[in-house]
Design a protein around this nucleic acid. Structure first.
Lengths: 418, 418
DNA sequence: GTCATTTAATTCAACCACTGAACAAATTGC
DNA sequence: GCAATTTGTTCAGTGGTTGAATTAAATGAC
């Protein structure tokens, strides 16, 4: 007769109290999500049938959304037969938008994504940022952001929030604890960007989110990739190796936001020493440095994306050293991914970042290891495919996550808009 | 200008439509959860302050819960000062309860857990089930379940649902695809148990859930363990090695419910061949068979829990072979867990099942590998501790998950009770 | 060309559950 | 014994959903 739980703060579904107004607030989100997820502009009647709400309620909710300029009416082409024609509903292309930013080793990027998920503005500024101080780098980034904001305003968009992708570990509050390849340590990004107003304040959407690059790239893939893939592992191969883990349609960030350090999963426990202090980490076998060295390009010191392009070129030309290097990297990746799939029961692995252009050569050895080692591979195969957005998807993923938050919680935007 | 999402069925927060009655339904759950989570019987006024609801609403909600016999009034001892004394609210000890069942290699188990999380009945029936057919094993289990049900009725409890723990892969619908150590393959458990009515049907609580043993053991740990641990990895060392993954207070089951096969994560990719077809799986280095062989006890063919007890005994006595075997197993576990922690950013690892009694000897080598290999170990250490429930926690965890579902969704029980 | 048919969307009274304030209940302390 | 204090209930008011009736806008048969 032992008590099994006494004072557990288990938040298995972290639903807070439901107030009077929460009802409308929640239904706004339900309806808006359906509109966002539909493959053609749905009518009010269809929304009512889908959600289980009455047509009266849906009409009222849609009126709110129309008034707040989050959705617009569109023609509803496919006429089925008799009856009054439906008015299709689409996400507005002139309402709130998200600002996506990225600081990486050899480029800065800024982009604007609207509610419908369309990339309306995208600039990449190439520059070696390793010798630049964090403050200067962020000042340059703020200039890009200002341009992006001007572009958004020109198109009638309001920037509702920003997400900044950084190749490193980020604490709550946007503190970059460590970004080894950038040479950053304990950089307080929000403080350094405080002088520049990047976006308009909107209730429920944080003004600036700083997040690991691999995580945001995975979110980009979630939004851009084929529908139906709610859980997957997204690998970003740059100088380090990052993994973005998407489970049931949501990014898994870990207890402190430091998930995804797949580059330091041991592949050969007694193998090559790693700068992390461990031995035999994946990074030492499938990281860019290791692949370049094996391909005979050590010390070339190419920018990250150029390196991947060069490797693809050589592999395409049939260079045996490059082919062998990629095969070995693919095997190491496959061994690690097989373990991850055994643990997490995923059915999709996406090759992003620098791996995207090399997918053709990495995929076969990866699949060989996976099918040989994954317990359930016999029942249902694991898909390995290149990222839909390719490299540099982190900024777009970040911008998409901003507008996604508005779709998930439109009440904040509506109260703001009056 | 590419569209970033078109027809994505992203269910980042899977909230369905909110109907009129959902409001009360949700608030019933909110209030009941607070009562369950409180460390002393809360008053209506405290609940109102905690949840943000008005006292009037809380009173109405509590009336419903009292009427449905889900909570009861208790004396509220700590008088603070002036004012009308509060009436404390506790979970009822005579309402619904969960039935937990387990079929394992060398025992059957059944237990009853009430709403408050107290284990009210628990029987373990030892028997070697490997030579027994699935149908016969389940018939024997049904007899145990009938006893448990009678015991529940005697104590005024109503069994609202059952969970069955099985050492194998389970598909949706309760089909056991493969339980290697039991010798089961494609066993349709619900069909075989259809003849026996195990529980009373309650809206919103499935009559029988079949689930992997390691997953339910992890749920047991979630409920019994120290509060504040919402995410952890729970290792179950039996003949195979299973892992239950709890993220943010919820069991992570994987896309098909087959998560947690940590035993087949590669430790030495070119190492010992494994019966899964791969090479160098963790199971071959830290599984019971491997440890017994290394300790010089190969072929002893002991029941799983006896084997662990015997190893603990020998280690306690200072037997060098056993000590060395456990150190090696701990190292292999540490290497694997380090990888998992790097990937998932967990801060707690629980040693359950057969590992629980061996934790004293497994922990040091595990910690050595973890601190040496986990990137963020320097910032925040990883805790490795034995399971609070010890071995055989799967049945209790299953029963607890049943009552947990009632706490999370009390409306189903209330409509049933009239 | 007219009218029945069909489907979409709106209107409106009813109702449910929460809100806020006033009120009753039960205890402490002066 | 009475003011102070805190708990819990009562009750009119309100926001938002419900369901049926109504209006709107098309198709198709005669």
């Amino acid at each position: 007769m032992t008590a099994v739980w006494q004072c557990q703060e288990v938040t298995s579904s972290p639903t807070g109290a439901v107030r009077q107004g929460s009802l409308r607030e929640l239904n706004l989100a339900v309806v808006l999500r359906r509109i966002a997820a539909a493959d053609r502009p749905p009518s009010r009647a269809e929304l009512a049938a889908d959600t289980g709400l009455t047509r009266a309620t849906v009409s009222a909710v849609v009126d709110d959304l129309l008034g707040g300029r989050l959705v617009a009416e569109a023609d509803y082409a496919p006429r089925t037969g008799a009856g009054r024609p439906a008015r299709g509903l689409v996400l507005a292309d002139h309402g709130p938008a998200g600002l996506g930013l990225e600081v990486n080793v050899d480029y800065l990027a800024a982009c604007v994504v609207d509610l419908a998920g369309t990339v309306r503005h995208h600039v990449v500024h190439r520059a070696d940022l390793r010798p630049v101080s964090p403050a200067d780098a962020l000042t340059r980034l703020a200039a890009l952001a200002a341009d992006a904001r001007a572009a958004a305003v020109r198109e009638g968009l309001t920037l509702a929030g920003a997400a900044l992708a950084v190749p490193g570990l980020v604490s709550d509050g946007g503190l970059v604890r460590l970004a080894p390849n950038l040479g950053w340590r304990d950089v307080d990004v929000p403080a350094l960007l405080a002088g520049h107003r990047l976006t308009e304040p909107v209730d429920g959407v944080p003004a600036l989110v700083v997040e690991n690059e691999a995580n945001l790239a995975a979110l980009g893939e979630l939004h851009a990739g084929p529908p139906g893939t709610a859980s997957f592992l997204h690998l970003t191969g740059e100088i380090g190796i990052g993994a973005g883990i998407v489970l049931d349609g949501a990014l898994y960030r870990g207890t402190r936001g430091w998930s995804g350090e797949i580059g330091h999963i041991p592949v050969h426990p007694e193998g090559r020493p790693c700068r992390c202090g461990g031995r035999g980490c994946l990074e030492r076998y499938a990281g860019q440095e290791a692949v370049l060295a094996a391909a005979g390009l050590a010390g070339a010191d190419l920018p990250a994306d150029t390196a991947a392009a060069r490797l693809a070129e050589l592999a395409e030309a049939g260079d045996p050293a490059t082919r062998a290097a990629l095969a070995d990297a693919g095997t190491a990746l496959g061994v690690t991914v097989a373990g991850v799939v055994n643990l997490l029961d995923l059915d999709t692995v996406v090759l992003g970042g620098g791996y995207a252009p090399l997918a053709r050569w990495l995929r076969p050895p990866m699949l060989a290891e996976i099918t040989g080692r994954v317990l359930t591979a016999a029942w249902s195969p694991v898909t390995v495919r290149p990222a839909a957005l390719g490299a540099r998807s982190a900024a777009v993923g970040g911008a998409a996550s901003v507008v996604r938050r508005i779709v998930d919680r439109p009440a904040g935007w509506l109260t703001r808009a009056g």
